[in-house]
Amino acid sequence: MIAQSQNIPCPVCSTGIPFDTKQLMMGVQFACPNCAASVGLAPESKELVQETMEKLEAAKGKTSK
């Protein structure tokens, strides 16, 4: 399920593209609801995003304790 709160503007038509970061890391491409463009994470940035998400989860764990 895609979290509707997160979206990025389409670089072609500026319509908001809803996306989920975890699915983005898995290589899923998210299509613009207005035009036929689709946006995905480039493979070279996957590791960086994955590391950041792990750190975010760790920070959430620290805060909840």
Binding site: C35, A37, V39, L41, A42, S45, L48
Partner: peptide, 11 residues
């Protein structure tokens, strides 16, 4: 800001 690479595919 740290930038990441995104891929835009369009016909």
């Amino acid at each position: 800001p740290i930038l990441i690479q995104m891929a835009l595919t369009k016909p």
